[in-house]
């Protein structure tokens, strides 16, 4: 094999794999721990969707902001939020990303440009427009990304944000993470326009559809869209067709899935397997190097869970901190 055929140097490829693997193991561990009753509240897992998150967010800096969804752990890890603090947050413990007071669906880290997961579907899109407006005034070439699921793309907030971003020519990218189901409702049943690219076209925005299970397809398409937005080209929509390995929420019986569907997507549409096959097949990275990352990630997640379990709960006094009003 001669040379590296990929658009990233080897260290960047290894980092992309590490982040995707970290998301996967983080989520798979939550799947187990939630079923044991260890975790308060609800969690919505991003396993299976890693290539989209890392393929896009991996090209952002801390000055670029993202508005996430209810399924936000993957976006956090891709954006560089500390997994140890994240695990504490999801366990509701002190030392968490938000002091243990936000939990899974309100996890945020503004120092990393992660404006927050969001329990209100479609609520992130207007926030991204605000961040995009700020970026436009700052003139540093920063962008904002709004992630939205296929179901939430039906929300008025999302459609209004497309309009606002278009008329103000904001550096905002709307990423539709299309995993085929709005909670349990098939996209075919619940989305009239059927193509999210068509939805963008209705507001005069360019839209692109990519295979969201192919890291390199996402990376290349997102790279062009980001470059366009950073140079004043304005907003655009990127639809990533992807799969989710788990239910809408943990505990979801998933009776709406076809028989054998999950086994099939885990076998044939696993973005991590595709990535590993591509980079090892090209001789750029060895299976041993990937296995070493796998071990390090497992150790990290183990440590994150142990520290989260050992951490104290927030106290009553913590209720009046991190709020807009002084008590």
């Amino acid at each position: 094999m001669a040379g590296n055929p990929f658009p990233l140097e080897k260290p960047a490829l290894l980092e992309a794999y590490r982040r995707m693997r970290t998301i996967r193991e983080f989520e798979e561990r939550l799947h187990v721990d939630f079923s044991r009753g260890d975790i308060p509240g609800f969690v919505h897992l991003y396993a299976g969707e890693e290539a989209a998150g890392v393929g896009i967010i991996g090209q952002l800096g801390d000055g670029d902001r993202i508005a996430s969804t209810h399924r936000g752990h993957g976006h956090c890890i891709a954006k560089g939020v500390d997994p140890l603090a994240m695990m504490k947050e999801i366990y509701g413990k002190k030392g968490g990303s938000c002091g243990g007071k936000g939990g899974s669906m309100h996890i945020a880290d503004l120092s990393k440009g992660m404006m927050g997961a969001n329990g209100i579907l479609g609520a992130g899109a207007p926030l991204a427009c605000g961040a995009g407006l700020a970026a436009k005034y700052r003139k540093k070439g920063e962008v904002a990304i709004s992630f939205v699921g296929d179901g939430a793309s039906n929300q008025g907030t999302f459609l209004e944000s497309l309009n606002l971003a278009a008329v103000w020519n904001l550096p905002v990218i709307f990423v539709v993470e299309n995993n085929g189901y709005a909670e349990s409702t098939s996209r075919d049943y619940g989305v009239a326009v059927d193509s999210y690219v068509d939805r963008a076209a209705g507001f005069g925005l360019p839209g692109v559809t990519v295979d969201g299970t192919d890291f390199f397809a996402v990376h290349e398409a997102a790279g062009e869209i980001l470059q366009r937005a950073r140079s004043g080209g304005g907003p655009a929509l990127l639809e990533c067709k992807m799969v989710r390995f788990h239910g809408h929420f943990e505990g979801d019986a998933q009776t709406y899935r076809a028989s054998g569907e999950i086994d099939d997507i885990r076998a044939n549409q696993d973005c991590l397997k595709k990535f590993a096959a591509a980079v090892t097949g090209a001789g750029v990275i060895t299976a041993g190097e990937l296995a070493a990352i796998d071990r390090e990630v497992l150790d990290l997640i183990e440590r994150a869970v142990a520290e989260a379990k050992a951490a104290p709960l927030p106290t009553a006094a913590d209720l009046t901190t991190d709020v807009y009003v002084s008590y």
């Binding site: 059927d194 193509s195 360019p206 839209g207 692109v208 559809t209 290349e220 398409a221 366009r228 639809e239």
Partner: peptide, 19 residues
């Protein structure tokens, strides 16, 4: 249903024929 959906919408202002 998925022709005319690729990156050329971004780099080349290619058309999008709606569903």
């Amino acid at each position: 249903p998925v022709s005319a959906r690729d990156i050329r919408r971004i780099i080349a202002n290619a058309s999008n024929l709606q569903i």
